[in-house]
Design a protein around this nucleic acid. Structure first.
Length: 660
DNA sequence: AACATGCCGGTTTTT
DNA sequence: CCGGCATGTT
């Protein structure tokens, strides 16, 4: 028997209840950290179903896969699995992929498109720059890529970007043009295109728009403060008529502006949707009063926020601890041994503890020390599994089976195992291909027409492509793992591993990665209703970061992660480390005028803690292999409610002083 | 074509 | 201090 509406709502406080009950019309829920946001969302959806709203007409989008999974699970616990599965719950990107597979023909591309990951993007940008003869010294490929991506996420067209005269816009646009063409040629869409193409579908195909509107009568957007241009437009178009849109978020936790997210979207919701109801959740059920007050002290330094005051539900608790380390080793050492001590004394479990860092390089010092102290840990979001050469190679092979036009994958594995195709041959084929707008595989297939490419090389590649195509054709009904294993056999990958690693021990380690990929495919096939190669690759592309805790989710270990990865999570004990000018706030953010966002990041970190919070910094830190003295972060003093000492200099002024 | 060496340049955050 | 890339060597 599903719970009645009354039973459902009885467990909520008055504001939460109002948010869960208001089903019709636009609704903005301003949910401060730890105020039971997820609870409101899940109860609200359960309440909808209890009011006989069809599950199929409900769309709930989240920002991360983790959040989507959690939401699904918590709804299923309330309303049962059967109904929960009929809801559309997922990330924007996952939602868009699905729609695009359905409607690809209307947009003029194949529904078998593949998703371009970060390294594919990188190589596409580099190739475009090579074509345009832009040396990488003048303009960094990574920078160009992020400029293109940011423009897409801000809904800027190339001509609009050009209007922003600043200097290198022309170059960026030229690369952008080529980059898009290369992706089209390879039947690929990057993450940003997934959103843009969906938007285009809705803008240019009234029938599609109408079907979206009819289907998703009730829309809910989580983490609304992180919504970027295309996402906002997609939501707006779907909801414009029925206006049953509920957005939930917290402007103080907006930490993705660098990806095109715009805080003004949440600040201006009532203007975008006139008549919107606003509910504020201000009772924090997560943290002790001491921790919450520290968080409030920090965020109070930001201006232009939605006014709100978080009230602690819990008692005062322990004061926030501080640790001033000599250097990063000392910092890691102290924290590792304190955690070891606490857990062994029985005051905490490993899984209760998180160490939060600003950048991806900070965990290194911690990993060594945690291991030395016998503290089990898991690095969240590090992608290490997919960084391994073997995995990347095999994924490239798989991607080629799914999409033979995928150029960066072909180039990656072309000569691995060695097939006697040299650099110059590849260059000639590529040049020939770009001249006539063909993708690399087609060029290789017609390699006889190309001058000065050794016959053996042509033959080898053609054979390779044929083998992969055959695998693709013949895999109907076959299990994914079988295909994978067959592929490994056919291309002689095992021999390649053996050739590269004559030492039996390293060879064993390397080969283990391959077997891990087999497991991975098995897991996927088990989990998914209708496993397919495309589905597998899609999940890897959309889900890459979350994949690794597939087997580590319920692992009892200390979590080590960036502040960005920590959003939405909570832990009884949190260590917030590296509170130094230049790290948090990050020097680059300071240079770009992004201190407010850094402060929000700090705020997110502080509010992850339930009972114990320790903040630390190192007085000296190695950077680029050089060690040098640091300055405690401004946030350190803001959190403690102290004025910085005499002679303390923030990082902007340090640079100014250095110039002088 | 495969391997070795040396240089330079770089560290924000991620779907 | 790392890793990637561009050269140079067999």
């Amino acid at each position: 028997m599903p719970p009645s509406p009354e039973e459902l709502l009885a467990g909520l406080n008055p504001e939460q209840r109002r948010a869960a009950e208001t089903l019709e019309g636009p609704l903005l829920v301003l949910a401060g950290a730890g105020t039971g946001k997820t609870r409101v969302i899940t109860y609200r959806i359960a309440h909808m179903l209890a009011r006989f709203i069809e599950p199929e007409s409900v769309l709930a989008v989240t920002f991360t896969n983790k959040a989507a999974t959690e939401m699904k699970e918590r709804i299923a616990a309330l309303v049962g699995k059967a109904d929960a599965e009929r809801l559309s719950v997922g990330t924007f990107h996952a939602f868009c992929v699905r729609r695009l597979r359905q409607h690809a023909d209307k947009l003029g591309f194949s529904k078998g498109f593949s998703i371009c990951d970060a390294s594919d993007q990188q190589s596409a940008v580099k190739a475009a720059m090579r074509e345009l003869r832009i040396p990488e010294k003048t303009l960094h490929p990574g920078l160009v890529q992020s400029r293109i991506s940011l423009a897409k996420n801000q809904l800027l067209s190339q001509s609009e970007l050009l209007e922003r005269s600043g200097g290198d816009e022309e170059l960026v646009c030229a690369v952008w043009e080529r980059y898009d063409a290369a992706l089209r040629r390879q039947r690929m869409l990057d993450f940003d295109d997934l959103l843009l193409q969906t938007l285009k579908l809705l803008q240019e195909h009234p029938r599609a728009l109408r079907s979206f509107r009819e289907r998703w009568q009730y829309v809910l957007v989580d983490e609304y403060q992180d919504t970027n241009g295309p996402q906002y437009e997609i939501v707006r178009l779907i909801c414009q008529e029925h206006r049953n849109l509920c957005v939930v978020g917290d402007d103080d936790q907006s930490i993705y502006s660098w990806r095109g997210a715009d805080v003004r979207k949440i600040l201006g919701f009532a203007k975008d949707f006139p008549g919107a109801e606003v509910v504020r959740l201000e009772t924090n059920y997560r943290s002790t009063k001491d921790i919450l007050e520290a968080a409030n002290r920090v965020i109070a330094h930001n201006i232009g926020r939605h006014p709100k005051e978080l009230r602690a539900h819990a008692g005062p608790g322990q004061p926030v601890c501080t640790f001033e380390a000599r250097d990063e080793e000392d910092e890691a050492d102290f924290i590792a041994s304190e955690i070891g001590f606490l857990v062994r004394r029985g005051d905490a479990a490993w899984r209760d503890v998180a160490i939060l860092v600003r950048t991806q390089v900070q965990p290194r010092a911690f990993e060594a020390r945690l291991r030395a102290a016998g503290v089990p840990y898991r690095l969240v979001g590090g992608m290490s599994f997919f960084d391994r050469k073997e995995i990347r190679d095999l994924l490239a092979y798989l991607k080629l089976v799914a999409n033979p036009d995928d150029e960066s994958s072909l180039l990656r594995i072309l000569n691995c195992p060695p097939r006697g195709v040299g650099k110059t041959s590849v260059e000639r084929v590529l040049a020939w291909a770009t001249e006539r707008g063909l993708s690399a595989n087609h060029a290789f297939a017609r390699a006889e027409e190309i001058e000065k490419v050794p016959a053996a090389a042509k033959k080898a590649v053609v054979e390779l492509l044929e083998t992969l195509a055959e695998l693709g054709r013949r895999r109907g009904g076959k299990r994914l793992v079988e295909t994978l294993k067959e592929m490994v056999g056919r291309v002689g990958y095992q021999q390649e591993v053996e050739r590269c690693y004559p030492d039996p021990q390293t060879r064993q380690v390397r080969w283990a990665a391959v077997e891990e990929l087999y497991n991975f495919a098995e897991n996927y096939a088990r989990r998914s209703g209708k496993p397919s190669l495309a589905g597998f690759l899609e999940e890897l592309a959309l889900n890459a970061a979350d994949q690794q805790d597939d087997d580590g989710q319920d692992q009892d270990a200390v979590a080590l992660m960036t502040l960005h990865a920590a959003k939405g999570l909570e832990f009884p004990r949190v260590y917030l480390v590296g509170l130094e000018e230049g790290i948090l706030p990050h020097s680059r953010a300071v240079a770009e005028g992004g201190v407010d966002e850094e402060r929000r990041l700090m705020y997110v970190g502080v509010t992850r803690a339930r009972e114990h919070l320790t903040v630390s910094y190192a007085a000296e830190r190695a950077r680029f292999g050089r060690r040098s003295a640091t300055t405690p972060s401004r946030f350190w003093y803001e959190l403690l409610g102290e004025a910085p000492p005499e002679g303390w200099t923030p990082i902007e002024d340090q640079r100014a002083a250095a110039v002088r």
